[in-house]
Amino acid sequence: MRRFLLQRAIRAVLTLAILSVVIFALARATGDPLTLILPPEASAEDRANVSQELGLDRPWVVQYGRFIGHVLVGDFGISLYHRQPVNELIRDRLPNSMRLAGFAMAVAILLAFPLGVLAAARKDTLFDRGDQVIAILGQSVPTFWLGVVLIETVASRLQWFPPGDIGGLDHYILPGFTLGWFVVAGMMRLLRSGMIEVLDAEYVKLARIKGVIERRVIWQHALKNALIPVVTFMGMYFAILVANAIVVETVFAWPGMGRLAYEAITTRDFPVIQAVVLVAALIVTVANLAIDALYVVIDPRIRHAG
């Protein structure tokens, strides 16, 4: 078991290392940040000055060496665009994104669980089909469109909730729902098929024979076991949320990591692009590791396999 977790951890570190090289190269391939920092009228001399000041005139290898050296001590450098330490930017944004992702995850779970379980209990009925349609709807319209429609109707016309921007709990409702519904389909499917399988298993049949009432069979005996795959894939859903946050944060003017990533890419802010991708990957990786560990705890079979 310890070996299993150790292996996972080593792989996670390797993953991040590969990623750092890829993202470093990609960030530099997106073009010259000087063109953005300097006004159109800037002279060649101005360009050389600023390039030197920012260290952009050094060879890539040197830049990477410096970058990775600093990253290892937790320093992502200075944003070319904001002229502010990247750490500060991330410190400002990361909690906003985490809270939004957490809220969205809660929305997703609240939607997916009843839908998934009830669909499994009434497999292949019209009810099941209807459930699936509701679940899949969330990922069948472009996220930004759903967001804009919600803002126009719920925020602008009805004025029930604020149209985004950071604030109290009510500010989370529209972006959280927009972001959360997107992963409902995946989660619901997993639960549904998990439940169907479990409901078919011998011990559930046994419970039924023993006369346990059906509602208890479903919600207690079966759900507990069907949860395992859902937990396993929590990391993946989380990754999906992180990715979709770029769109949702733009629509709802949410000052999070997704927005930061988008701005950084369009402004060729190397240090920020690198940092955001690495931090996002780190979070997903750590989440996966935690889930692996949790998984070992809840599922005894892994211990034998490891």
């Binding site: 967001g147 804009v148 803002i151 126009e152 925020a155 602008s156 004025q159 604020p162 149209p163 985004g164 921007d165 733009t250 629509v251 709802f252 003017a253």
Partner: peptide
């Protein structure tokens, strides 16, 4: 900073 126009208009309507 509110990049999406619909959001800006909603903020205006809500007095934000």
């Amino acid at each position: 900073l509110v990049p999406e126009e619909t959001t800006r208009i909603a903020m205006l309507r809500q007095g934000k």
